[in-house]
Nucleic acid binder design. Structure first.
Length: 474
RNA sequence: GUCAGAAUGGCAGAGUGGCUAUGCAUCCGGCUGCAGACCGGAAGAUGUGAGUUCGAUUCUCACUUCUGACUCCA
C-alpha cells in the first residue's frame, strides 16, 4: 500500500483514492515567461515519478498540469520583448515541453491554459461574491480572508504573529485586509491597449494568479481531487489561496493529499539571479545528458533539498553509468544465450522476486526513489554475478524483464542507439587482427572506433560495442 | 522577529534502542594480450553538549550551522 506524505497533516498517510483504482492529480505547471530552470524541472519530475509509481501499482491516473500564460511576468516580459502575449508565451511553452522530453517526463493528460479559462474564473468569482467571500474595489475583485475561518490550515501559519511582508502590493490600500488577495485584477490602460483584457461584470479585468488553478482543477475533476502537487514555495500563499477559493465556493474539501517537492539549491545556496547561479535545463543536459540529470534527481528523495554541484553531478553520472553498463552487458549476452543449465540458475531465480518486492516497497514508502535505486543496484550486482558464468536463456530473460521493469518505472534507459555500420565494420576488422594476435593493428583500430564515439569491450561472447556517452564532459 | 524543515564517511544516500546498508571515488587482488566492463576484498561517517537507558546514530532537551516560508518564486 502506497504511503504519501501529506502537507495538510504533516504525516505519511496510506493513500486511498476517491474512486477505487483511479487517481486524479493536479500539478502546478510553469509560468511561461522564460526558460525554466533545473529547480522547476525537479518538481515536474517529482510529479512524473508519482504518476509512474501509481501506474506501476495498478492505478489509472489522470494528470492535469496548467500553463500560466497570463500574469504580471508574462505581460511585463512580452512587452519588453516587443511581442504579443500569445506569441511570447507560445515560445516559452514550447521550451517547457522540450525540457520535459530531455528528462523523459511523460506528458500530462491535459495542459489547460489560463487564457482559455478566464470565463470559468469569472464564474467562480461570481460564486464567491454571492457567498460574501469576495468584494470589488476599484475594478478589481478580492477574496475576503476573514470570511474563511480555515484560512492557514495548509501552511499552519498563525496570522496573528506574523509580520506583513516588507514589500506591499501597490494596490494594498484598496483591500479591506492586507492579506486579502486578488481574484481578478482591473485592467490597466496599457493592457487594454495591448488587448490583454476580458469582460466581466466588474468591467475589464485579467485573472489574478491563484484562481486559475482552482478553476482548472475543478473543471476536470469536480470539487474534490486526490492529489495536488507543486514546489514547497507554493504552500503559502498559492495553495492556501486555492483552498480558500475552492472550498469557499463549493463547501467541499478541495484536495485530499497535498504533495510538495523540496527545492534544489546550488552549492549550498538558493538559486537566484543576483548570485548568478541559475542553471537552465539545456545547460546541464548538454554536459551530462538528460538521463543522467534524471538519475541525479531520482537519487535524492523529493522531500529533501538537492544540492546541485559539479561534483554531485559527476557522482550521479558514474552511478548511472554503472546501471546502464549492466543493462548493455545483459542485452549483449542475451544474444548468445542457450538452454543449458548453469550453476547460478537456481540462486538467481530465487532472488529476483525478492528484489522486485524490495523495489516496490521502496516506492510505496512515499516514493522513496533513492531506496528503489538501492534495489536496482542489487539487481545489477545479481545480474553481473550471474553473467560471470551463466547464460541460460530463461534466466537471462527473467533478469532482463525485471531490469526493464525497474528502468521503466524510474524512466531510465529509454533510448536505444543503433551502432552505425561504419563502426561495425571496424569492429570486424579489429577482430580479425586480434585473431592473428596483431595487437598493434587491433589497438589502433580501437582508437579509430573511439574517435567515432564508440567503445569496444572484449568479452567471452565476442566484442561488445557501445556508444561512448558521458565522455563528452565539457 | 515568527514559523517550518535539515544535519550520517571525500561525494550521494538508506535503515536501526544493542554489528551503521548500498553505490560512486580511493587502495589491494582476480579476470584480460592490453584496455574496458565485471567479480572479490580493504579503509573510511552518525554537527556540539547534556539527559533518559544496562546500552543511542536512533528517544528528549539545549546549542551551533544550514535551508526555506512570511514578498513574485518549483
Amino acid at each position: 500500500m502506497l504511503q504519501v506524505y501529506n502537507t495538510l497533516t504533516r504525516n505519511k498517510e496510506p493513500f486511498k483514492p476517491l474512486k477505487a483504482g483511479e487517481v486524479s492529480i493536479y500539478a502546478c505547471g510553469p509560468t511561461v515567461y522564460n526558460f525554466p530552470h533545473i529547480g522547476n524541472y525537479r518538481t515536474f519530475l517529482m510529479t512524473d515519478n508519482l504518476v509512474r509509481t501509481l501506474e506501476y501499482l495498478g492505478y489509472k491516473v489522470t494528470l492535469v498540469m496548467n500553463i500560466t500564460d497570463i500574469d504580471d511576468k508574462t505581460i511585463r516580459d512580452s512587452e519588453k520583448a516587443g511581442m504579443s502575449l500569445k506569441v511570447f508565451t507560445e515560445k516559452y511553452t514550447k521550451e517547457f515541453f522540450k525540457g520535459l522530453d530531455m528528462l523523459n517526463i511523460r506528458r500530462a493528460s491535459v495542459y489547460p491554459k489560463a487564457t482559455e479559462n478566464v470565463g470559468g474564473m469569472v464564474n467562480l468569482t461570481q460564486k464567491l461574491m454571492e457567498k460574501g467571500l469576495a468584494y470589488e474595489k476599484g475594478g478589481s475583485v478580492y477574496y475576503r480572508i476573514s470570511g474563511f475561518p480555515e484560512y492557514g490550515k495548509l501552511s499552519k501559519i498563525d496570522f496573528e504573529n506574523i509580520k506583513i511582508g516588507a514589500s506591499v502590493d501597490v494596490d494594498e490600500y484598496d483591500k479591506d485586509n492586507p492579506r486579502d488577495f486578488a481574484l481578478l485584477k482591473a485592467s490597466t490602460p496599457e493592457e487594454i491597449e495591448r488587448g490583454i483584457c476580458y469582460e466581466s461584470p466588474w468591467g475589464k479585468i485579467r485573472p489574478g494568479w491563484h484562481i486559475e488553478c482552482s478553476v482548472m482543477a475543478m473543471k476536470t475533476f469536480g470539487p474534490t481531487l486526490d492529489i495536488h502537487t507543486g514546489g514547497v514555495d507554493l504552500i503559502f500563499p498559492h495553495h492556501e489561496n486555492e483552498i480558500a477559493q475552492s472550498e469557499g465556493a463549493t463547501g467541499n474539501p478541495f484536495v485530499r493529499y497535498w504533495v510538495h517537492g523540496e527545492h534544489l539549491i546550488v552549492e549550498g545556496e538558493k538559486m537566484s539571479k543576483s548570485k548568478g547561479n541559475v542553471f537552465t535545463l539545456p545547460e546541464i543536459v548538454e554536459i551530462y545528458g538528460g538521463e543522467v540529470v534524471r538519475f541525479m534527481f531520482l537519487s535524492v528523495h523529493y522531500r529533501k533539498k538537492l544540492d546541485y554541484s559539479e561534483a554531485f553531478a559527476e557522482n550521479a553520472k558514474n552511478n548511472y553509468m554503472k546501471l546502464k553498463e549492466t543493462l548493455d552487458n545483459l542485452e549483449f549476452v542475451l544474444g548468445s544465450a542457450d538452454d543449458r543449465e548453469y550453476p547460478g540458475d537456481e540462486e538467481t531465480l530465487k532472488v529476483l522476486p525478492e528484489l522486485e518486492i524490495q523495489f516496490k516497497e521502496a516506492l510505496e514508502d512515499d516514493i522513496n526513489t533513492p531506496k528503489a535505486i538501492t534495489a536496482f543496484r542489487d539487481l545489477s550486482r545479481t545480474a553481473n554475478r550471474y553473467l560471470e558464468a551463466g547464460k541460460n536463456r530463461q534466466v537471462l530473460e527473467k533478469i532482463h524483464t525485471l531490469y526493464r521493469q525497474f528502468s521503466d518505472v524510474l524512466g531510465l534507459f529509454a533510448g536505444k542507439e543503433e551502432v552505425p555500420e561504419e563502426v561495425m565494420k571496424l569492429v570486424e576488422e579489429r577482430e580479425a587482427a586480434r585473431q592473428k594476435k596483431d595487437w598493434s593493428t587491433s589497438d589502433s583500430i580501437r582508437d579509430q572506433i573511439k574517435d567515432l564515439g564508440y567503445i569496444v569491450q572484449d568479452t567471452k561472447e565476442g566484442p561488445n560495442v557501445k556508444k561512448a556517452e558521458g565522455e563528452l564532459t565539457a
